[in-house]
């Protein structure tokens, strides 16, 4: 692969990471969903670029799956759920936006420090994109921890999964079977989440998860 190919691949990986930060920064529910959709589109471009530069046509399939499932189906469904449940208000975070951004930056540094010594023998492209992918995964986890609302936690989970696909695309690309099964399990998980949303809503009149805690005997 040419150096320009490498550079563009890294740039796109970096863009996926930037969108993760935007997810952490975003406060409005609808904004979150569109940023997530943008991140998925960028991820699809990463996969397609990998397919083009490395002559790996199966990655085109990955890109197509990502676009259809994560950039169209899931965001549209989330929007529908939002309007059905009538949640348009801003997201309340357990941690202030500023401190979660700082935590995010330290997680990026951590993942880079973690990946570099382990993958000393690998090619530079793999190492850098692996570091970026791990950061995306950790940022998704951070988002799940710091947000109180069920919908935002689900978006955190989905962006975490975006990070996993990023890692897979960056290394060698995963077998199509695995790819398909992951896509479907994400879909299934999403459907289950959707059912849960309605159940939680019906029971507690809110999607804020702290309400559940008293039923697990954690508080009060």
């Amino acid at each position: 692969m040419s150096t320009l190919g490498y550079d563009i691949a890294h740039l796109l990986d970096g863009a996926v990471l930037l969108f993760s930060f935007m997810l952490l920064y975003q406060r409005r529910m609808s904004g979150l969903i569109s940023v997530f959709a943008l991140q998925s589109v960028t991820l699809a471009v990463v996969a397609a670029w990998g397919a083009y530069t490395r002559h790996a046509p199966h990655l085109y399939a990955s890109a197509a799956i990502v676009v259809v499932v994560k950039a169209v189906l899931i965001p549209v469904a989330l929007h529908k759920i939002m309007t059905r449940l009538g949640i348009h208000r801003t997201v309340d975070a357990a941690m202030s936006i500023g401190s979660s951004m700082i935590a995010g930056a330290s997680l990026v540094a951590l993942s880079i420090m973690l990946v570099l010594p382990v993958t000393f023998a690998s090619a530079a492209l793999t190492r850098e994109s692996l570091a970026l992918a791990l950061s995306t995964v950790l940022l998704g986890l951070l988002m799940m921890i710091t947000r109180r609302n069920a919908v935002t936690q689900v978006i955190g989970f989905m962006s975490l999964e975006n990070g996993l696909i990023l890692a897979a695309v960056g290394v060698e690309g995963m077998p199509l079977v695995v790819e398909m099964s992951i896509a479907f399990s994400v879909m299934v998980a999403f459907i289950i989440f959707g059912i849960f949303f309605f159940q939680i809503r019906e029971r507690f009149d809110s999607l804020d998860l702290p309400y559940l805690e008293s039923f697990r005997g954690e508080r009060r």
Binding site: T3, L4, Y6, D7, I8, H10, L11, D13, G14, A15, L18, E128, L132
Partner: peptide
Amino acid sequence: GIRVSLLM
């Protein structure tokens, strides 16, 4: 070349 740092 194009660098991730430059993008940021």
